[in-house]
Design a protein around this nucleic acid. Structure first.
Lengths: 100, 100
DNA sequence: TTAACATATAAATAATAGTTTATATTCAGG
DNA sequence: CCTGAATATAAACTATTATTTATATGTTAA
């Protein structure tokens, strides 16, 4: 199996921040505006904007403008699936960590 | 779906470095000693040791000492599967990035 | 066009992480 | 025990990144 090391590491980096993961989960069910995310997560607006930019740069999000609002949504349904699978892996690893 | 944000972000961080991904792939097929990895990847020995430590701290690797050699191997078969799936996702995202 | 709101950007700072160089530890063989 | 090889650790440096504070841009409605 041949890996796309550069973009793969970039995606993982995008997923390596707790706040960005929370943002992704918040958006997961439905597209949301910046201020909705800000309120839901209790983070500062510039911080959320910054992370959204990162997530978009990593191709994980799509943007859509509607009036003064900017709506972000997951770029691809598989993104959430991938996160869930990683979360399962993490559970596994944590569960088995003392077995050796 | 409830995420384990802290450890999940930690695992993603471990996967967010190209050198660490290469190390994981190098080890993937069979356990290898530090010097084997050093030679195979052309990285400095301290750098490889450092990354191995990170990967171990993230529960992705297991260690096994045999004489003067220290062998590292993937902690769980699902680790490689997870990486492959992420790689597929990345291909998808890259392929579709200009569709909108 | 001005006021108020939504979002983005910039600058500054603080924290973290990758790499290199040098040195320490551990182990097997002589 | 001493030497050389394998690995780990420490210190120093560089680079990157997360966060905050302040400000700019853009949009709508009055």
């Amino acid at each position: 199996m041949r890996l796309l090391y550069r973009p793969l590491s970039a995606i993982c980096k995008a997923l390596s921040d707790e706040n960005r993961l929370r943002i992704l989960m918040a958006i997961g069910s439905e597209k949301k505006s910046v201020s909705q995310i800000v309120e839901e997560l209790g983070l500062s607006q510039p911080l959320v904007s910054h992370h959204l930019k990162e997530l978009r740069r990593s191709l994980l999000l799509k943007v859509e403008r509607s009036g003064p609002f900017v709506y972000y949504q997951i770029a691809d349904g598989e993104v959430l699936q991938a996160i869930e699978r990683l979360n399962n892996l993490v559970s596994e690893l944590v569960k088995n960590q003392d077995l050796f």
